[in-house]
């Protein structure tokens, strides 16, 4: 699969903007998708999710929406055969714009703090007898330089503490302490946050910087009417409650000279309950344990993907 993929220029991207936007790349994607596996489809949804192989001209080579590696590999092989057979005059796109579309990636806080966030069901017994047993999801949490510095005690003395600014503790609780293990879930609303307390404490001072301990507690609960079983109960949404309550424990190393965190590990462990429309909890609505891990993100382009709830950060556009 990897060898086949290397014969393409591979990209991963969010489908909603591409299938509904008006920028050049969106319109080209729409042209490609309407030759593909979901062409013209509107029910049960109009999604154009999937894996597409295409020429830059917009000519579809092959497409599929499948988790089966064998089926995807066959699709890629077919696409390569069609690419080889495609006349050179039909491979390239005329009049490709020079300027990329405006995207949140341009707001990547290179001088701030970027965390990778992993979410997984923990200590479940029994586990489902399918992919859900080992399901996990990934997201990111971004902090501007000013926000990151606001997490560090002003005093360098051992025992000095600093409570996280309410806005940042609230944002982490709303946007990252959510049950996306089996699928996307909307962030909590500000009014859903009942508790969001995080404290950073200086545990030691070394030549490497400040060794920091992190502790905290959070709780967010949303109530209302919404579906919890994908499209099957969409027309008959019932009264729902979903919540997420955690205790947090972590440690970090902050380098005062550069103003950067050089190590960061924070675990949030607690319970989740309820479900959202697309997070696959329709048969798992009772309270259950869950874990979230925050670590420093890597430097590769793939680690520059914006947080899923970046729209709720309150950052100016």
């Amino acid at each position: 699969m990897v060898k086949l993929a290397q014969q393409f220029v591979p990209a991963a991207d969010e489908v909603w903007r591409l299938q509904s936007g008006a920028d050049f790349d969106c319109r080209l994607f729409q042209e490609i998708a309407e030759q593909g596996h979901y062409a013209g489809r509107t029910q049960p949804s109009a999604t154009r999710q999937g894996i597409y192989a295409a020429a830059p001209s917009g000519k579809l080579l092959a497409s599929i929406n499948s988790r089966d590696p064998k089926a995807v590999a066959e699709m890629l092989a077919t696409a390569l055969e069609r690419w080889e057979a495609l006349p050179r005059s039909e491979r390239r796109r005329a009049n490709l714009p020079d300027q990329p579309p405006s995207r949140w990636e341009t707001r990547y806080p290179a001088d701030g703090l970027v965390l990778a966030v992993f979410v997984r069901d923990v200590e479940r017994d029994p586990r489902p007898d399918d992919w859900r047993a080992s399901a996990w999801n990934k997201d990111f949490a971004w902090f501007t330089r000013e926000e990151a510095l606001a997490l560090v005690p002003e005093s360098r003395e051992i025992g000095a503490e600093r409570a996280w600014p309410a806005e940042l503790a609230n944002r982490l609780t709303r946007c990252n302490l959510v049950d996306c293990v089996r699928g996307q879930v909307p962030p909590f609303r500000r009014e859903d946050v009942e508790l969001a307390e995080l404290v950073t404490r200086v545990a030691a001072v070394s030549e490497d910087g400040l060794e920091l301990d992190l502790t905290g507690r959070t709780r967010a609960v949303m109530r209302g009417r919404w579906p919890v079983a994908g499209f099957s109960d969409e027309a008959a949404a019932g009264e729902q409650e979903r919540g997420f309550a955690t205790e947090l424990l972590g440690r970090a190393l902050f380098e005062p000279a550069s103003g950067r965190f050089t190590r960061f590990e924070l675990a949030a462990v607690g319970t989740r309950w309820g479900g959202a429309q697309f997070n696959g909890r329709q048969d798992d609505l009772a309270e259950a344990p869950i874990g979230v891990l925050f670590t420093l993100a890597g430097s590769s382009p793939a680690e520059h993907v914006p947080p899923a709830a970046i729209w709720d950060y309150g950052w100016p556009p």
């Binding site: 393409f8 991963a12 969010e14 591409l18 894996i51 830059p56």
Partner: peptide, 23 residues
């Protein structure tokens, strides 16, 4: 990390595109 960046590169290098697009 974006369809656009792959499209530009594929156009310049005359290679096919592979796009994984999800919600």
């Amino acid at each position: 990390t974006s369809f656009w960046s792959a499209l530009s590169e594929a156009q310049a290098s005359e290679r096919p595109l592979l796009l994984w697009a999800m919600n």
